[in-house]
Design a protein around this nucleic acid. Structure first.
Ligand SMILES: [Mn+2]
Ligand SMILES: [Mn+2]
Ligand SMILES: [Mn+2]
Ligand SMILES: [Mn+2]
Lengths: 213, 213
DNA sequence: GTAAAATTTTAGATTAATCTAAATTATGAA
DNA sequence: TTCATAATTTAGATTAATCTAAAATTTTAC
């Protein structure tokens, strides 16, 4: 695995996260996500293909190598987030932006020793699965809140985004991983839900929030 | 303190480390150290001055701000080296290159919490002093081996370089910080010395090695 | 005090990564 | 099918960071 620039690495991560079930995405989706101009993305797509990170010259499908690179970056990102929370006592809403930088530090030795020290964590502080060395993801075995059945009991396993504004909102509402909850009411007209948390506390979520839970 | 690029930060660190007692250095010295062309350095000097990091347009003297930036980078570098050795069980010859990358991670929160976790270390794994938040350096109170008097007892406090080839050489000879030593013989014609380590082991050092000890 | 040598700066190019504007190509609705 | 709209690519510029070659300046040596 060659040492790519942070820019190239961020493109690969973005493409990976935007790929649909057929493993592909579009120039405009990548441009939108990175807040770059489509022309810049188009230009980068050519370069990524030249580097062998994309399957096809114009299709925006990651090659085997590109896919592995993406998973290794996600692995590093989530290991660093885990480290920051567990070792340096960061809160879950504080770690993402720092991990965005730390994931680009190139050191096989460090990438090997960090998980040893952390005792091979399977999930990061947001409940996201940490790929192993070879890029295999542990099974999260979870469903999104929007698909939860009324009155069925669930456990809060992960959040769909680790952006700090959303996590701060959850903090304010007293929501944490590991809590038990069930949907007690579901409003069809606006997609909002009423939850019972730990059998003793009621919370209302808008559809927007529910989609990230 | 603005977020400068890693390139700018490395120039500032280099200038800081090359400055003489008058606080200045030269284009050619910086070019030599960074293995860059003098023309590139000349161009960067102009930019550094525009950023307010150099006192003078052509003199290569750090401004107050440039000086503080250099010390903060050295602080981060040495804190990360300490972390890698103490927490992740790295050896002293393994940490420098990784710290060269980690020192460029921008996060006031991380820079604040890392030393808290490490209990405010004063010296890094190579015995180098760690500047405090404001850039003040603790006093090392040490003399170089080349200035040691014969038969006077000393304690091994720091190494003058943390390049891995030199540290591997010291490892091979069984040298570690904290050991007691004295010079038993000094050869005038080639500058080599004979040392007695921990009162029980003799080691011969060439002048080249002695200068980094 | 000149002249050679060393040092520094300028001029012009290159590469990665971005932009805007324009041209091209693909999609899809009538 | 055809034409309007959307998506993508091309063309041309810009900025940071580098280079080589040449010009200018400073230092050193005689
Ligand atoms: Mn994250
Ligand atoms: Mn995460
Ligand atoms: Mn170091
Ligand atoms: Mn050190």
């Amino acid at each position: 695995m060659k040492n790519e620039s942070s820019t190239v690495e961020n493109y690969i991560k973005t493409i990976y996260s935007l790929c649909d079930k057929n493993g592909k995405t579009t120039v405009s989706a990548v441009a939108e996500r990175l807040q770059n101009n489509p022309a810049s993305v188009s230009n980068m797509v050519r370069r990524l293909h030249e580097k062998g990170l994309l399957e096809n010259k114009s299709k925006l499908i990651l090659s085997k190598e590109g896919n592995l690179l993406a998973r290794q970056l996600i692995r590093k990102h989530r290991l660093w987030e885990t480290f920051l929370v567990r070792v340096l006592n960061f809160k879950w809403e504080e770690v993402h932006d720092i991990a965005e930088q730390l994931e680009h530090v190139h050191s096989p030795l460090l990438t090997e020793r960090l998980p040893v020290f952390l005792k091979y964590p399977k999930f990061d502080p947001h409940g996201d699965p940490i790929p192993d060395k070879k890029g295999n993801l542990p099974d999260l075995n979870a469903i999104p809140l929007t698909e939860a059945e009324v009155d069925q009991l669930y456990i809060f396993r992960s959040v769909a985004t680790d952006k700090s504004d959303f996590l701060n909102y959850l903090n304010k509402k007293g929501l944490q991983l590991g809590q038990k909850w069930k949907v007690t009411e579901k409003e069809e007209f606006d997609g909002s839900v009423k939850l019972l948390i730990d059998e003793n506390r009621e919370v209302y979520f808008s559809e927007t929030v529910a989609q990230n839970f």
